[in-house]
């Protein structure tokens, strides 16, 4: 795997706003159950934020709110200074049109736990699909970018393979390339290595680390503490729908502030 993944898409996004994500007082309910309780988080350009926490703490739900795969009931989330999923009318938030939401999602790459590659398309076709269909990039140009991305994630020879012919680790690297091909200014990783066999976790983490080093703004929900320690600028600990700690990794791993963080670390680092 060679470095400079982002070179394949012309470097980091030219977006200039300093705050990429600004979430303020986000409440989210599933029925009567409140999964997010006043979550606020700001992520600056180039920052790598790792969200950790026990299962059911709301971390996955929270990053799914950032590209409006989940609706929120209170608060607001801005990406690159624009309200996500909603627009304001007379001081009230109403859900935005499908077209506008789709337009905002172009700027936000997402990598899923279960890869979610399109099984009827080859690796290459998976990557060029959205640039061509959504951004209107000419096919030749999209293909060139896709090949460069595949090469940088170490899969140059797998362009014509179908997802079913790839290992989990390879599929997830294609999925990362697919998200990057849209030239996002923010990447969300939702437990990107949790569904992988242990021997394949490393190859995916390598790509994620490389992206982090190259200056991609990232929010990653993960249980990989090594990743957090190595490349995270901040570690955010969530528990029962709240952020209970937001600090630098060194501090978090050596001297966690709360008892719950200590207990969580004791369990996960065992």
């Amino acid at each position: 795997m060679s470095g400079d993944i982002l070179q394949a898409i012309g470097g980091v996004s030219p977006e200039t706003k300093d705050k990429v994500v600004e979430a303020v007082g986000v409440d989210k309910y599933f029925g009567a159950h409140q999964v997010l309780k006043g979550v606020s988080l700001t992520v600056k350009r180039g920052e790598v934020v790792v969200i950790v926490g026990p299962s059911g703490s709301g971390k996955t739900t929270f990053i799914r709110c950032i590209n409006h795969l989940e609706k929120i009931q209170k608060g607001r989330i801005l990406v690159n200074g624009h309200l996500i999923g909603y627009r304001e009318r007379n001081g009230r938030l109403i859900e935005d049109s499908e077209r506008n939401i789709a337009r905002q999602r172009r700027e936000i790459g997402m990598v899923f736990q279960r890869f979610n590659l399109f099984p009827h398309l080859t690796a290459l076709a998976n990557i060029i699909e959205a640039p061509i269909q959504v951004r209107g990039v000419p096919k030749a140009e999209a293909t060139e970018t896709a090949r460069a991305l595949l090469a940088r994630v170490g899969l140059a020879d797998k362009a014509n393979s179908y997802p079913a012919q790839l290992s989990g680790g390879q599929q997830q690297r294609v999925a990362i390339a697919r998200a990057l091909a849209m030239r996002p200014s923010l990447m969300l990783f939702d437990e990107a290595t949790s569904a992988l066999d242990p021997e394949m976790i490393g190859e995916v983490l390598e790509v994620m680390k490389e992206l982090a080093r190259e200056g991609m703004t990232m929010i990653a929900v993960t249980h990989e503490m090594g990743f957090a320690r190595e490349v995270a600028d901040r570690v955010v600990m969530m528990d029962e729908g709240r952020i209970i700690e937001d600090t630098d990794p060194n501090q978090f791993f050596t001297a966690p502030a709360s008892e719950r963080s200590k207990a969580f670390l004791a369990r996960i680092l065992r």
């Binding site: 999602r105 790459g109 979610n116 399109f118 951004r135 998200a179 849209m182």
Partner: peptide, 13 residues
């Protein structure tokens, strides 16, 4: 997950 992946790439219905 297919729908979610497609949506996250900016595709409309």
């Amino acid at each position: 997950g297919q729908t979610e992946a497609a949506k996250s790439l900016g595709m409309t219905y």
